[in-house]
Design a protein around this nucleic acid. Sequence first.
DNA 1: CTGTAATGTTACCCATGGGTAACAAAAAGT
DNA 2: ACTTTTTGTTACCCATGGGTAACATTACAG
Lengths: 245, 245
Amino acid sequence: MDSGSPALPSSPWLPFESRRRARDEKREAVLRTAVQLFLEQGYHRATLNDVAERLNITKPALYNYFRGKHEILFECWSMGAELVDSVITEINAGGGSGLTKLRKLVHAYAELMATDFGASLVRFDLRDLAEKDAGIARAAKKRIDATFRKYISSGIVDGSIKPCDPKLAAFAIAGALNWIGHWYRRDGASSPTEIADEFTARLTEGLAAAAVPNRIPREKTPSAPLSRETRRKAPGKKRTGGASR
Amino acid sequence: MDSGSPALPSSPWLPFESRRRARDEKREAVLRTAVQLFLEQGYHRATLNDVAERLNITKPALYNYFRGKHEILFECWSMGAELVDSVITEINAGGGSGLTKLRKLVHAYAELMATDFGASLVRFDLRDLAEKDAGIARAAKKRIDATFRKYISSGIVDGSIKPCDPKLAAFAIAGALNWIGHWYRRDGASSPTEIADEFTARLTEGLAAAAVPNRIPREKTPSAPLSRETRRKAPGKKRTGGASR
DNA sequence: CTGTAATGTTACCCATGGGTAACAAAAAGT
DNA sequence: ACTTTTTGTTACCCATGGGTAACATTACAG
């Protein structure tokens, strides 16, 4: 009975004692635990009781923070989407040819797929979302896809990428990247960085107009996909009024 | 009551009349309908009642042909696996460099992903299978992955493919291909053949050791991925004894 | 202290859907 | 014809798990 280990993703609810700390930290703790469980067991097999149990609370307590299971799923998915969005924003801010931007995107996206929230982006089934949320998700996916195509197209224009069908090329690249979310294991042979490096080379060398140095030119690529502070949410309460998100 | 359209994948059970025909045809009809429903709604949302309804029968009738829902899922998955296996067998029988074989595989696999049973291969969650079946499925996946790696490795040896990490290269290629199963729509802009041609070029030109003609050399590539007769099952009764499969 | 809001808990409800039992009606033997 | 097997049907069972109600507890304002 007393044996249970202290729950892997450190839980703000210590078994039976001090229960303080801010609301948002708890919300996030729920999401971290949920995304992990959804990934390892699948959304339908993972129950809210499971999620609650890992957090040392009971199912109804979850309803203090979320409307229901689908909302948890959606917010997990959103976390991943925000990560991608900030990656894109960062790349758009910088300069470079179409090929350069594409390589940055491939590299950062590959690393993202090795994270829980990143993987949730491609392993969760949009059909499990409420119709409204599914719409948002579809739109986000479309934006991401459009970005791949845009980089490729502009690369063709500026001469850094050889002519090809941007749509299918984008599908091929995104597919290879998304698949990482399905096979990557933390205890596997390759580290996220190694994978990202190799994929960046492999997926773009066929597109490069001329023979170019293989490795991604590390102009300023940070080791982490993005700076920590970029993705914070509005921390305001909730509970009162709008379901806006 | 009489209005219902005749159900898209022609059903051997006509609404309320002649019920003849062989057992196996019915089994296959169940699988065709099931795979379609599982793909369009997802395994957990698609109910056996749904499946039965589309076939003009009722749920318990399905149990004349299958042990339960997971068996149906597994057999759908198996259909896809058999298709891939026969593709591989065919390629292995033929000759050619590592690169040539890889291209054939990419081409055939791409076309397969545009079929229901092919897509089921990558869109069904192995965790929904019984542990025994899941083992079989994992083994099959491993064989397929091994084949990709083998072609790449042998291509490196025979000089047709430039040196690279066969494992990651195989993941990248398989990922791009598998993703087709997620985005391909019959009513989309690109036909399966177009997709297969483009992917064959796109995914292998970066690997080719020298500049080579882009398009796949159509030595003998049949338009259909494989000959119809290759994949028939043991048609014997069942019911008595062995659960062997 | 004391009232109120925030957060938990225990004890339920109940829709869903896989699976089964018991029976009906064709097909197939004999 | 008659039994027997195959293949359906109708009518159930019941485990699961999301969601809710009612109550307990703690934090904090005043």
